[in-house]
Each structure stands twice: as structure tokens, then as C-alpha cells.
Design a protein around this nucleic acid. Structure first.
Length: 602
DNA sequence: CAACAATGTCATGCG
DNA sequence: AACGCATGACATTGT
């Protein structure tokens, strides 16, 4: 075999010297390179697009939503219109700050505007001056915030996965009361602040440690305050939707508080934030659960989190998804329809010009000239294996003929030369080079030799019909010879057809595999985007909540007293108005519990 | 020698 | 009708 390989190599080099093989090889190589380049550049593009998309999101987040100038009918029941701070002003601020449209964000500028808008405000016990600083601080570093969010999300998601896969025992010990905590797997060790004042709860806590906010938000709901959030009928519907809907009131309603309803930050004062964030969390939980259900497995989740922070990973990942996808499709379609129309520029000897698609086939079609040879070694092998190749070379052809006559037994059954067995054994003990070359010939070669066909199989097979017939007419051929020639031609053509067919099949398989990869990449990307949107939503919800707290805390009645969150709430009407409405009697919220239970996955 | 892959061949259908 | 191509199925060959 060693010798065989050497010979093969020699022959192959001969082919190369004659310009048969090297070009093909190089060409295919070039094609592959260009393909790689294409993919790389493509990936870069996609990455850029993704990155820019991400920036877009960020930009959107940072967009300063200017004053709408919209005036709000502050419909305050009773004497509420005599607030120390103009309720209308506050509400307008609130509205301006929260367009409540899609992708709306809450820039620092708005917050500062809010703080400036109420400069002379009577100081609430909570200490208004400190009120805003937290928010400002928060908004001043949106990227840090984002980072923290991502970290938090990462933890939460991973733990959520854990909960999903395990029995759901979270790191916090999963206190019975805190379903959310256990379900959502809040950051471990975060202090749970159950007693916070209206201001401190929402603002101070935010400022202190934003990463902890989730726990803060959690705690109020634990305290049961969240159970009393909803007073208005809209609430019930509004709860399930993000506040993108017009219905914010439900979220905003502070939980039932102690009767004094002061803002003195009574330790027992439930944090109205709890309700809001509780809702937010619930929404997100459902979303996350959804994501998990959709195959967002823990590994993926962690990967998502990791990759999400680095655009490079994403861009590389999705490098060739769309492009290759489309090309793959094109390939598939063209594969089935290109047989006749497309031609191989590299097809030698008029070999079948199968070209599957622009991407793969370019280099493959070069191979197609001599048959499908996925690898170099195969190429070599094919070169010597295919008699047509050998005979295409004049001197080889000559050699072949010599051997033909050397070896050919005199009389032979044209159709059944009995190659393998008899031929070999009849040969001498030691094979001479000529005999060796004989073995390189195909059965049809032997048959042709045996029948003394005066031209090469290559011509028989690859000549166009006209020339083929012309060739036949030049010789006086017996019926047996003609029959053999026809068979040789038929088999030769079919052989190439089979090679092309197999190549095509392989192409299809490869394309399908690539499609699968691309789709998986797309799926991952979409999941990442989903996570990102969830983060944004959560962030916006928290900002809304904070501002709600801020506005509500600054409202004063005719006597300069703050409104009790337990007795009043801001309601965002569907028509864009914001109302200060009195709360009804304490409304227990079994529904919340129900929902928690419902959302909870064990 | 068996298992496997690659390749060749045949039969068939289609254009 | 002859021809070529595509392809499934089977055969052969090579490792």
C-alpha cells in the first residue's frame, strides 16, 4: 500500500503538472478562504449591528424625554386640590417623567427637574432633601446600574434555574412567606427591609445599594402591604401587564398602611414600593418562567448572562447566522434545480457540471470535475482511480494502451473479463509496474482493452454525443464492441452522476447542520434579547415606583399634611390623567397570593 | 474476518 | 425515442 500511495502521489503530481489538479485544489482552497473571510466579515457586521442595537437600547434609555407640556387635570376628590405642593405640578412631573410609552425611560434630568420643581416644598419628616439624591445618584450612573442589574439578573436567573431543577429550596431558606424570594432567588444575603418609611423605603434604599433593591422590593410584599395595592377596577387588569399599558394606578397604590398614614417612616409602615415591585417581579417571574419553559436551560442562562456582557461573544456567535442561513437556503434550492442550468467552470472533460450553491459549491464544483473529493487524499485517490483521468493524459494513455495489450488475454469474453480473481492470479508472482498500472484501471477499462476498443474510455464517456457518434463512425466496430462502448459510456456517466449526487447529498446534510447551528444561535440571541428586555422592564418599573413615591410623598393636603398612602393613591388614568384618589377599605389581596402560587414553579 | 466507508453499478423515473 | 441526469438500492472495493 505504501507503494500505491507513492504512486498515487506521483500520478497526482503529474496531474498537477498538467494543470489538472493543483488549480482545483488551490481554487477550492481559495474558495474556502474567501468563504471564511466572508463569514468573518459577516459576523463582524452582525456583531456591529447587534452592538449598535444594544447601544440603541442604551441610548433610548438615556434619552431625555422632554417636557410634554401636557397639563393634567388633577382631579382630587374632596379638598385634595389644596395640596401644599401643587398636585398638578407633581403629576405633570410624573407624567413628563413617565411617558409610559414603549421604551420610555426615566432620565436623571427628569428627576433633577422634579427636585427642582419642588424646591420650597415643606419638608416631610423623611427629609425631602435626601429624597432626591438617591434617585439622582442612581440615574447618574446608568451603566453601573445596568451592570448591577445584569449581575443581579444573572444571579437570579441562575438561581431560578436551580430552583427549577431542584426542589426549589433557595439560598434564603425559602421562608414560607416570601414566595417571591424563594422563587426568584434573590441575591443571597441581601437584607430584607421590611420597615421602611415612604421615602426611605423607595428612595433611600435605592440610593444605598441598588443591587439590593430587589430584596427591598421583595420585603414589602412580604409584609403584606402589597396585598392592598389595588383599589381601582383597572388594577386588576393592569397588574398583569407591564406599565406600558395605561394602567399604572394599580402598581402605584401604596399598600395599606398604618392608620396614621404619616410619612414619618414608621417602622411598621409598609413600603408601597413593595406592591409595585411585587407586581414587577411577578411579571418578570412569569416571563422568566416562560423563558425557562422555552428551553432556557441553566447552562444557556448562564451563558446568556456571560455573553450578554460582551458584545464580542454575541457578534461572533451570530456571525453567520442570517447570511449563512440565507445562503443555505439558497443552496438548498439551487441544489435541486441547478443541474442543467448551472455549469461548472472547472469541469474538465465535459464532466457533469453540478453546482449546488454559491457558497459551498464553488470549491466543490472544482472537485466535481473529477468527482466528489472531500479531502486531498481522496482527490489523489480519485485521480488515479478514475481511468478517465489517466487517459486524459496522453502519455499515460499510451502507457495504458501498452499494458492493455500486454495483459490482455487473447480471447475474452467482452462483457465479462473477470478482473479481480482470474486476472490477478493468472499474473506472475511478482507484479511488474505495468501490471500494477493495470490494476489501476477500472473494470470498464479492462473490458475496453479486452475488446480492443480503439479509443479511451474517457472519450467514450465524456465526448459529446455528436463527437461520440463521429468517433464511432471512424472505426469499424463489432456489435459487441459497440455494446460495450455504450455500456462504458452509460456507466461512466452514471458514475459521475452518482458522485455528484452524493456530493449533493452531503452538501444538503452540511447545510442542514449549519442551519441548525444558525437557528440555535438565533435562538440564543433572542433569548439574550429577551433577558435584556426583562432587565429594562424591571428597571423602568423600579424607576416608576420611585418617582411615584417621590410625587406622592410631596403631595400635601390643604393643611399642609401629607397624604396617607394608606388612604390615598395616585391613579394613572387611561386618558393620561393622573388622579389622587382615596383608597377604599383595606382590600386584602388573596389574588396576589394566588398569583404567586400560580407563577411559582416547583 | 467483520465493520464500515467510499465508490461503482443498476434500475428507474424524469425532462 | 434516444439521451442524460438524479437517485435509491445494491454490489464492490478499500481500510
Amino acid at each position: 500500500m505504501r507503494k500505491d500511495i507513492d504512486l498515487i502521489d506521483i500520478l497526482w503530481r503529474q496531474d498537477i503538472d498538467l494543470g489538472a489538479g493543483r488549480e482545483i485544489f488551490d481554487y477550492s482552497h481559495r474558495q474556502k478562504e474567501s468563504e471564511v473571510d466572508k463569514e468573518l466579515s459577516d459576523g463582524r457586521e452582525r456583531g456591529d449591528s447587534w452592538r449598535s442595537a444594544g447601544n440603541e437600547v442604551l441610548d433610548r434609555n438615556l434619552l431625555v424625554d422632554g417636557e410634554t407640556g401636557e397639563s393634567f387635570p388633577a382631579q382630587v376628590p374632596g379638598a385634595e386640590d389644596q395640596t401644599a405642593l401643587s398636585l398638578e405640578e407633581c403629576l405633570r412631573l410624573l407624567e413628563a417623567t413617565f411617558p409610559f410609552g414603549e421604551n420610555s425611560e426615566f432620565p436623571a434630568a427628569d428627576v433633577s427637574a422634579l427636585s427642582e420643581a419642588v424646591p420650597g416644598q415643606s419638608r416631610a419628616p423623611g427629609g425631602p432633601p435626601t429624597l432626591l439624591s438617591p434617585l439622582l445618584a442612581e440615574n447618574e450612573s446608568p451603566f453601573d446600574l445596568e451592570q448591577q442589574w445584569q449581575d443581579l439578573m444573572s444571579i437570579m436567573e441562575m438561581q431560578a434555574m436551580e430552583v427549577n431543577s431542584t426542589t426549589g429550596e433557595s439560598l434564603f431558606g425559602g421562608t414560607g412567606g416570601d414566595l417571591l424570594a424563594s422563587n426568584y432567588s434573590l441575591a443571597p444575603g441581601t437584607p430584607i427591609n421590611q420597615n421602611v418609611s415612604l421615602h426611605q423605603a423607595s428612595l433611600g434604599s435605592c440610593s444605598q445599594d441598588f443591587s439590593l433593591f430587589s430584596s427591598e422590593i421583595e420585603s414589602p410584599s412580604m409584609a403584606g402591604g402589597s396585598a392592598m395595592l389595588q383599589l381601582t377596577p383597572d388594577n386588576s387588569t393592569g397588574l398583569n401587564s407591564t406599565f406600558g399599558s395605561t394602567n399604572l394606578s394599580g402598581i402605584f397604590f401604596p399598600p395599606q398602611m398604618n392608620s396614621t398614614g404619616n410619612e414619618t417612616a414608621g417602622p411598621e409602615l409598609p413600603d408601597p414600593l413593595g406592591g409595585l415591585l411585587d407586581e414587577a417581579m411577578l411579571d418578570e417571574i412569569s416571563l422568566m418562567d416562560l423563558a425557562i419553559e422555552e428551553g432556557f436551560n441553566p447552562v444557556q442562562a448562564s451563558q446568556l448572562e456571560e455573553e450578554f456582557d460582551s458584545d464580542s461573544g454575541l457578534s461572533l456567535d451570530s456571525g453567520h447566522s442570517p447570511a449563512s442561513l440565507s445562503s443555505s437556503e439558497a443552496s438548498s434550492s439551487s441544489s435541486s434545480s441547478s443541474s442543467s442550468s448551472s455549469s461548472s467552470s472547472f469541469s474538465e472533460e465535459g464532466a457533469v457540471g453540478y453546482s449546488s450553491d454559491s457558497e459551498n459549491v464553488d470549491f466543490e464544483e472544482a472537485e466535481g470535475a473529477v468527482g466528489y473529493q472531500p479531502e486531498y487524499s481522496k482527490f489523489c485517490r480519485m485521480s488515479y482511480q478514475d481511468p478517465a483521468q489517466l487517459h486524459y493524459l496522453p502519455y499515460l494513455e499510451h502507457v495504458g494502451h501498452n499494458h492493455t495489450y500486454n495483459m490482455a488475454p487473447g480471447a475474452l469474453d467482452p462483457e465479462e473479463p473477470k478482473l479481480p480473481g482470474g486476472g490477478k492470479k493468472s499474473g506472475g508472482p511478482k507484479e511488474k509496474p505495468s501490471e500494477f498500472l493495470d490494476k489501476q484501471m477500472s473494470r470498464d477499462e479492462h473490458r475496453a482493452r479486452a475488446m480492443k476498443i480503439p479509443f479511451t474510455n474517457d472519450k467514450i464517456i465524456n465526448l459529446p454525443v455528436e463527437e461520440f457518434n463521429e468517433l464511432l463512425s471512424k472505426y469499424q466496430l463489432s456489435e459487441a464492441q459497440l455494446s460495450l462502448i455504450r455500456d462504458i459510456r452509460r456507466r461512466g456517466k452514471n458514475k459521475m452522476a452518482a458522485q455528484n449526487c452524493r456530493k449533493r447529498k452531503l452538501d444538503t446534510i452540511l447545510n442542514l447542520e449549519r442551519d441548525v447551528e444558525d437557528l440555535q444561535r438565533d435562538k440564543s440571541k433572542l433569548l439574550r434579547e429577551k433577558v435584556e428586555f426583562l432587565k429594562s422592564i424591571r428597571q423602568m418599573k423600579q424607576k416608576v415606583q420611585s418617582l411615584y413615591q417621590e410625587v406622592f410623598g410631596r403631595l400635601r393636603d390643604e393643611q399642609g399634611r401629607p397624604y396617607s398612602p394608606s388612604q390615598y393613591a395616585l391613579q394613572y388614568g387611561s386618558d393620561g390623567s393622573v388622579l389622587l384618589i382615596p383608597r377604599g377599605p383595606a382590600e386584602p389581596q388573596p389574588r396576589r397570593q394566588d398569583r404567586k402560587q400560580k407563577d411559582r414553579r416547583k
